[in-house]
Computed example of a mutant assay.
Amino acid sequence: MRARGLTKAFGDVVALDGVDLAVSRGEIHGLVGPNGAGKTTLLGLLLGLTRADGGDLEVLGRPVRRGLALPDGVAGFVDGPGLYPALTARQNLDALARLRGDGPAGVADALEQVGLLGVADDRVRGFSLGMRQRLGLAAALLSRPLLLVLDEPANGLDPAGKAQVHRVLTRLAGQGTAVVLSSHRMDDLAALCGTVTLLATGRIVFSGPVGELAAGADELDYRLRTSDPAAARVIAAGTPGLGVLPGGSGPQREGDVLLVRARGPVLDDLVTRLVGAGVGVRELAPVVAPLEAAFLALTAAAARADGSHGEGRR
Rank of each mutant, 00 (worst) to 15 (best):
G5K: 00
L6E: 08
K8G: 10
K8C: 12
A9W: 07
G11N: 07
D12K: 05
V13R: 09
V13W: 04
G18K: 02
V19E: 05
D20Y: 03
D20C: 11
L21N: 04
I28P: 02
G30S: 08
L31I: 12
G33P: 12
P34F: 06
N35R: 02
L42G: 03
L42W: 04
G44A: 14
L49V: 13
L49Y: 08
D56R: 05
L57G: 00
L60G: 05
R62E: 15
P63T: 03
R66P: 13
P71W: 00
P71R: 02
D72M: 09
D72G: 15
A75I: 01
A75Y: 06
G76K: 01
F77K: 01
V78G: 10
G82P: 11
L83W: 09
Y84Q: 11
P85L: 08
L87C: 12
R90C: 08
R100S: 14
R100I: 08
D102R: 15
A105H: 11
A105T: 10
G106K: 10
D109W: 07
E112D: 15
E112A: 15
E112N: 11
Q113I: 04
V114F: 07
L117R: 14
G118W: 05
V124F: 09
V124G: 05
R125I: 06
F127T: 01
G130E: 09
G130A: 11
Q133L: 13
L137P: 06
A138K: 00
L141S: 03
L142Q: 03
R144S: 15
R144F: 05
L146C: 13
V149Y: 05
L150T: 07
E152M: 13
P153C: 12
N155L: 14
N155K: 06
N155G: 12
L157K: 02
D158C: 12
P159S: 10
A160H: 10
A163K: 08
A163N: 09
H166A: 15
H166Q: 14
R167H: 14
R167A: 15
V168K: 04
L169M: 07
L169A: 04
R171S: 14
G174P: 02
L181W: 08
L181Q: 06
D187I: 11
D188W: 08
L189D: 04
L189P: 00
A190H: 13
A191V: 06
C193Q: 03
G194A: 13
A200C: 15
I204G: 14
V205Y: 01
G208Q: 11
G208P: 13
G208R: 06
V210P: 01
L213T: 11
A215F: 08
L220E: 03
S227K: 08
A231Q: 15
A232E: 06
R233C: 13
I235W: 06
A237T: 12
G238R: 00
G241E: 02
L245N: 00
P246K: 02
G247E: 07
G250P: 05
P251E: 00
Q252K: 04
R253L: 14
R253F: 03
E254H: 00
E254Y: 07
G255V: 13
V257G: 01
L258S: 04
V260G: 01
D268Y: 06
L270E: 03
V271S: 11
T272V: 13
R273G: 11
V279W: 05
P286Q: 04
P290M: 03
E292K: 03
E292D: 14
A293D: 09
A294P: 14
L296M: 14
L298Q: 13
A302T: 10
D306P: 05
